[in-house]
Simulated scan of single mutants.
Amino acid sequence: MIEARDNADERIDKTTSSDISLGQMLEALAAAPDAPLVFVYGEKRAKPGYHVTEVKAGQFAALDCGGNPEAWDEIFVQLWDVDENAREHMPAGKFSKIIRKVADHVRLEPDARLTFEVSDGVKPMALYCASAPRWLDGIFEVALVARPSSCKPRDRWLAEEQIPTQPGCCAPTSGDACCGFRSPARP
């Protein structure tokens, strides 16, 4: 069973992105469980025979380059982009059923950030964040966008200041230097 966590305010949002959560994805897909679920990444559709090969949950704790502690939950869904036996795209309800089966054995936080790991079995896996499912001509389409790295203190500062990103701009937050964080052991 997917459970909400009461200590949500103890968790610090890892990014300022608008990634869809696992709960949001499942809620959207419940509207039409028989509709095909099509993932689009790198300007191409996943092949109709794609497999969900693994679902894993992680709790992470980190220190960003500004010395700020962070913690977050993340769900990783691994997609194997293959076309086997002239299959059709997986129905939304089947995807949801896979997630529910995993949730019977692994604690999945509904508000966890959702990351997709995608590979065709030949190329290395790439990490993607997902948009909300869009209803298009009888299918659910989920756009997967490559997950970039970023400077978290700079992202927070830009969000607070609501100013456009400038090349080479890296402002400190709360007096902490970003990208130049010095541990106590370093001069």
Rank of each mutant, 00 (worst) to 15 (best):
L37R: 06
P33M: 03
C179H: 02
I2K: 10
F181P: 03
G66M: 12
M1C: 06
S21Y: 02
A112S: 12
K152E: 15
D9H: 12
A92N: 09
A130F: 06
Q59T: 08
P91F: 06
G42K: 05
D34G: 13
Q59K: 09
S149K: 12
S174V: 01
W135T: 01
G180W: 04
K152W: 11
G23T: 10
F95I: 08
V145F: 04
E70Q: 08
A86M: 08
H105T: 12
G49N: 08
A8E: 15
A61P: 00
Y50E: 05
K152R: 15
I12R: 14
A92L: 01
S150D: 12
I163K: 14
L26P: 02
T53R: 14
D64W: 07
F76G: 02
F39Y: 15
S150L: 14
P91T: 11
P124I: 02
R87G: 10
L22C: 03
D6S: 14
T53I: 14
E74W: 00
D176P: 00
C178T: 15
V106C: 02
D155S: 12
D120T: 02
T115F: 02
A71M: 09
P187Q: 10
R186M: 08
S183V: 03
T173P: 00
A8W: 13
S150N: 09
Q166E: 14
R182A: 13
F116S: 06
H89D: 06
S131I: 01
L26S: 02
S18P: 00
K56C: 04
R147E: 15
A4L: 14
K152A: 12
D111W: 00
V142I: 13
P153W: 14
I163A: 10
G138K: 08
D6M: 05
R134E: 15
G180L: 13
M90W: 04
S149M: 07
M1T: 09
P148G: 07
P172D: 06
F181R: 09
A71T: 15
P184I: 11
M125V: 05
D81I: 06
P36D: 09
H89K: 01
M25F: 07
E88H: 05
E160C: 00
V145L: 07
A86W: 08
G138E: 09
A62R: 13
T115L: 14
A185P: 00
E43L: 08
G67L: 13
W80M: 15
L127I: 01
D13V: 08
D120C: 06
H51Y: 07
A28F: 01
E27C: 00
D34L: 06
R186N: 10
D81N: 14
P167T: 04
I20E: 01
D137M: 09
R11W: 07
Y128M: 07
D155K: 08
V38T: 11
S21M: 01
D137V: 07
A159D: 08
D34Y: 02
E74F: 01
L127V: 01
R182W: 05
L127A: 07
V118A: 11
